[in-house]
């Protein structure tokens, strides 16, 4: 494995990629699924009266930001394997690193995501490291930033992922 980043990959750094809109309007069913999975009883998400009084209507938990732009597992006419954070999977393939994990995640929250919103996301590869040896195998770390705005153009959040793409030891 050479340390040099291929020119085609280098050219992707800093370039906005995959400008996409959510496939469905933000809805309460997914909010309740998420709250149920972690037994989150915050009345903001269960009591319309509380939501109206505090947030001016129903909102989604802020940490659901990345949930909204994950594609359905299957959709009519979709012929390829559908993945969220496509830039991450592009890097795995382009750098020939078959395995990958997210090692850290930072999210900065803006306007609340409201029920009925449609969101738009844009992925940007911020950096790619040289070859590193880790306990999982040899590979590279990369940082991908995902900016999310709502239908009014307001910033609702920025997700920053640091990932390790690696090849397991033989």
């Amino acid at each position: 494995m050479t340390d040099e980043i291929p020119a085609a990959v280098q050219a992707l750094i800093g370039v906005p990629l995959y400008d996409e809109q959510t496939e469905f309007d933000i809805e309460m069913g997914y909010v309740h699924n998420t709250c149920a999975a972690v037994e989150n009883g915050n009345p903001l998400f269960w009591d319309k009266e509380v939501a109206a009084a505090i947030t001016g209507g129903q909102i989604a938990p802020p940490t659901m930001l990345s949930v909204w732009f994950r594609p359905h597992y299957w959709a009519p006419g979709a012929s390829v394997d559908r993945k969220a954070l496509q830039a991450h999977f592009d890097l795995k393939e382009l750098l020939n690193l078959p395995e990958a994990v997210v090692t850290s995640n930072e999210t900065i929250f803006g306007e609340p995501v409201r029920i009925g919103d449609t969101l738009r996301v844009r992925q940007t590869i911020k950096s790619i490291s040289g070859i590193k040896k880790t306990k999982l195998g040899e590979g590279r770390f990369w940082v991908i930033e995902v900016e999310t705005t709502n239908q009014h153009g307001a910033h609702v959040g920025t997700d920053i992922y640091t990932c390790l793409g690696y090849r397991r030891p033989e």
Binding site: V38, E39, N42, P43, P62, V101, T103, E106, F109
Partner: peptide, 21 residues
């Protein structure tokens, strides 16, 4: 998020969160 807002109640508003696995 659930852990934080169990403590703060619904008026607690997350501004930023960072975690390392």
């Amino acid at each position: 998020e659930r852990y934080i807002t169990d403590w703060t109640g619904p008026m607690g508003r997350l501004g930023r969160i960072t975690f390392q696995m």
